[in-house]
Design a binder for these strands. Sequence first.
RNA 1: GGGGCUGUAGCUCAGUUGGUUAGAGUGCCGGUCUGUCACACCGGAGGUCGCGGGUUCGAGUCCCGUCAGCCCCGCCA
Length: 584
Amino acid sequence: MVGGVTAANENESMRLVGWIHRRRDLGGLVFWDLRDRSGLLQISLGPEWTESDSLSRAHRLGSETVVSVEGVVKLRPAGKRNPDLATGEVELQAVTVAVLNEARTPEIPVYLGPEDELPAEELRLRHRVLDLRRSELQDNLVLRHKLIMAARRELDALGFIEVETPILTKPTPEGARDFLVPSRVHKGQFYALPQSPQIYKQILMAAGFDRYFQIARCFRDEDLRADRQPEFTQIDVEASFVVPEDVFGWMERVIASMADVSDSVEAPTPFPRMTHAEAMERYGTDRPDLRCGLEIQDWTTALGGLEFGLLQSAVSGGGRIRGLLLQGGASLSRKQIEAIEAEAKEAGAPGLLWTKRSDDGGSGPLSRFMAEGDYEALGMAAGDLVLVAAGLDAVTSPSLAVTRLAAASQAKLKPTTECAWLWVTDFPMFDESDGVLTASHHPFVHVHPEDADLLDTDPARARAQSYDLVYNGVELGSGGIRNHDSNAQRKILRLLGLSDADIELKFGFLLRALESGAPPHGGMALGMDRIVMLFSGSKSLRDVVAFPKTTAARALFEEAPVHVSEQELAELGLRTLGAGEQHG
RNA sequence: GGGGCUGUAGCUCAGUUGGUUAGAGUGCCGGUCUGUCACACCGGAGGUCGCGGGUUCGAGUCCCGUCAGCCCCGCCA
């Protein structure tokens, strides 16, 4: 490997293979930077030490050509060393050069100069083979490998065994749209690609594999984002006879072992725990970014008495007055506060009220309603800023969550830590919309032990025995304790509006597995791609996946999807609709 | 499904109020060059201004449509 050659190898003869990364042709002398996965090494070619055939060949070879170079490692002349290169003390003086594969001129550069911009992402994806040669993407995929290996080692050490589950599975009636695969043998019938191995891993629990894991590929046919691909990888984990704390302990060890192979991430265990209700109250979101210490406060009592119709009507309408106190925030300009308000509005707030306190009173929209004692009631000192939202929690929580991060960013608050891990527990079982319940996580989560009765009386208020892992405000995984009792499972599916016939048709195989004597079990799944993205500091999932799809779910390098012939369709018992027929 | 941004040489970009032959850097090709490391210097080739339509005496530039990429909303149990 070229990157490992050092002064210790002086005068050693060696044969090195790699790509011509960069050339410097001085006429008499030629210098190459030879590249392989390990790094770069300068090859020097000159008439005094290089055979003439090889030297003349060297003049015409272009970058990205694959060569084999035989020569002798030499210390570079004093003053000719390159401190920016790991191998910059030495060079390989080439004796002979053989061309292993001459490359056409690359469409996009592999080498980027210090002031060069990356090519357009479309071109990077179209010419992925070249883009993947760049050290940035190589490093990301190497890190991905190390993280997966660390997780595998740790789970293996904990007694988990890896089991593969089918890629051709049964369509799921709820959740994301399935990718469907037509059956040739059974015309008119379809498999689906798994959205996750959820049901299979529960069946494995019933089968007695009491600690299971899988680096599992999952597929969801939904529109994409920078942090969402149609196929993605989960570290899927499940175990029998567990309580949530067991899962937390194991997953903390997995995360800690991954942090060990990372240069940038730390994961001191145990991670803090917080209930969903507490997260919503203090941070307005179920995935709070705890790098920021700001917390939402309830000022319904403190400000509800002000002669301010907006506040009073919010409270009488069943809402609350909540907000954020920024110590020293009075130094923010009106423009900065407006920028914060713009983000709050984007998140659904009708507006944001604010007041600054100074030595000689206050300023801002709230100040003319406030007396000296009101500032005290908010805990404000001179120089502080308060941002307030009033209304129903369903509106103010998301906007205050955004306000909190926007304010921290505008005020340039120092993060309390660089790596903020958090368990959020006890999510609601259901989301309610117009009286219709949908599973807030998935329909297999067990109800919180304290809320079992609520399933009969007020299911919308029932909490689940579920949890998310949150890192710096990003959800990295979620899981829960499952229903191992088929009647409990049936009850939840009924609450979701499924008929008994539907339940049998769609989930009968799961229920029969539960009835066979399934142990209590639970687990979780970690989003592997997001973990690599955050651990590598990448801005897009596309930079941590070898062959990603575009936002239109297209593969530009190999060009998929494609039309197929009528013959192939006929063999599957399919025909395509003509233009205009699609929605008929 | 909706909103926004972008699309000019292989690549990265500039292109004035709509005006005559569309430029730069880099890469590529040719030449000079024995210590370069973004080598330097000289010369050259290279353009369906994403595509289609419209307005205009005249469109890279204005208008409409469309395609592609990216970001966001919806969606993602």
